Simulated assay, not measured.
Amino acid sequence: MLNVEEFSISTLNCLKKVTGDSPVILHEPEFSGNEWKYLKECLDTGFVSSVGKFVDRFEADLAAYTGSKYAVAVVNGTSALHIALKLAGVLPGDEVLIPSLTFVATANAVSYCGAIPHFVESESVHLGIDPLPLREYLKSITEIRNGQTINRETNRVIRAIVPMHTFGHPVLINEISAVAKDYHLALVEDAAESLGSYYYGKHTGTFGQFGVLSFNGNKTITTGGGGAILTQDENMAKHAKHITTTAKIPHRWEYVHDEIAYNYRMPNINAALGCAQLEQLPSFLESKRSLFKKYKEALETVSGVSLMEEPKNCKSNYWLQTLILSEDFQSARDSILKVTNDNGIMTRPCWRLLHTLSPFQNCPKMELPIALSLEQRLINIPSSPSLVS
């Protein structure tokens, strides 16, 4: 059995078979389509801000691609989640179930609503919320009163659940949806990382009352900064559009705003970039799948490390390729991170579990043994589609 140093070097050498010897970052955007053309049109016409045809087009293209009836473009994925939770009925003082194994934006958006994150367990196949222990946990700590789920330990309403599709891999969303239904919870999908991912042939972000996407610079497609709210409800879509554009009532010259709202609208110039990127999404996804196959082949010679593969009945976008260390080698995580980064291969651990961060240490949580184990065994490796071009 290899020691930690030998194991780390072996893993590095396997990655270099795919990445080569030149420095490589974790994920970079690829601009090889109509980006310059569409951006130039924005500059030539002067429509660079909140008005312009590309926002409408981007929303329509997103809806068509994902199979959602409506899409509302906003400035980033966090603002999309904030508005989705607000429209789903989350109120100050409510609790919202979220995984501890997620990016901090999930918990921040809950907090923006004045609500309290309630951290729940993940499972090791999909890396998302595990519905089985969650159901047993809710059975033990809650009761239903007047159609609301009440946490008996805090006497607060548990209002919603936010499953997050980790690194682009779909969670057990049908089973989570069943839990949400049985416990009267609004279901808001954090699909920020999973554009191009499907569960039983249905796109992520379209199972719940709302879904949210992100188009940050490191996502599968980018608008520079940006996000979107997906919904099947026309009235909710109209309300989302209204309150993300400062709730201004349309008028030729008057400034009348009929509710407290947010300046979350996506600028036309960002949407132009998104339209060009979305045209190339199929080729990006194909490249990412090819990259997965290359990594998998390269890593076959090293025992103790595997590559995260799309779960059964899922089609993953492989946004971030992910190493999973066996429990025997979890102590090698930091050594691998050091030796890869020292050699020009950018790697990153998964996020620190959110319940351990100072803003959230007093939030309610269930037992999290799997999440704690995954935190020590996951490493993201370079995932740009250009690595196979």
Rank of each mutant, 00 (worst) to 15 (best):
residue 3 N to D: 15
residue 7 F to R: 04
residue 16 K to C: 07
residue 19 T to F: 01
residue 22 S to Y: 10
residue 24 V to Q: 06
residue 29 P to M: 14
residue 32 S to L: 14
residue 34 N to A: 11
residue 34 N to C: 10
residue 35 E to G: 08
residue 35 E to L: 07
residue 37 K to E: 14
residue 49 S to R: 11
residue 53 K to N: 09
residue 59 E to Y: 04
residue 60 A to D: 10
residue 83 I to Y: 05
residue 85 L to G: 01
residue 86 K to I: 04
residue 87 L to K: 11
residue 88 A to R: 11
residue 95 E to K: 06
residue 98 I to A: 00
residue 103 F to A: 13
residue 107 A to M: 08
residue 119 F to I: 07
residue 120 V to E: 05
residue 126 H to K: 09
residue 129 I to N: 02
residue 132 L to E: 12
residue 139 K to S: 06
residue 139 K to Y: 12
residue 145 R to S: 06
residue 146 N to P: 00
residue 150 I to P: 00
residue 152 R to W: 09
residue 155 N to T: 07
residue 159 R to G: 00
residue 159 R to V: 06
residue 168 G to F: 14
residue 170 P to K: 03
residue 180 A to P: 08
residue 190 D to Q: 05
residue 194 S to W: 14
residue 195 L to M: 07
residue 198 Y to A: 02
residue 199 Y to T: 01
residue 200 Y to N: 14
residue 203 H to E: 09
residue 206 T to W: 12
residue 208 G to L: 13
residue 217 G to I: 13
residue 222 T to C: 10
residue 226 G to Y: 09
residue 228 A to H: 02
residue 233 D to C: 13
residue 256 V to T: 09
residue 259 E to G: 05
residue 266 M to Q: 13
residue 280 Q to N: 11
residue 286 E to F: 12
residue 294 K to S: 11
residue 296 K to F: 12
residue 304 G to Y: 04
residue 312 K to C: 02
residue 313 N to C: 07
residue 317 N to S: 08
residue 318 Y to F: 15
residue 326 S to T: 07
residue 328 D to H: 08
residue 329 F to A: 02
residue 330 Q to K: 14
residue 332 A to W: 09
residue 348 R to H: 10
residue 368 L to P: 11
residue 372 L to I: 13
residue 373 S to Q: 13
residue 376 Q to W: 05
residue 377 R to F: 10
residue 379 I to T: 07
residue 384 S to D: 03
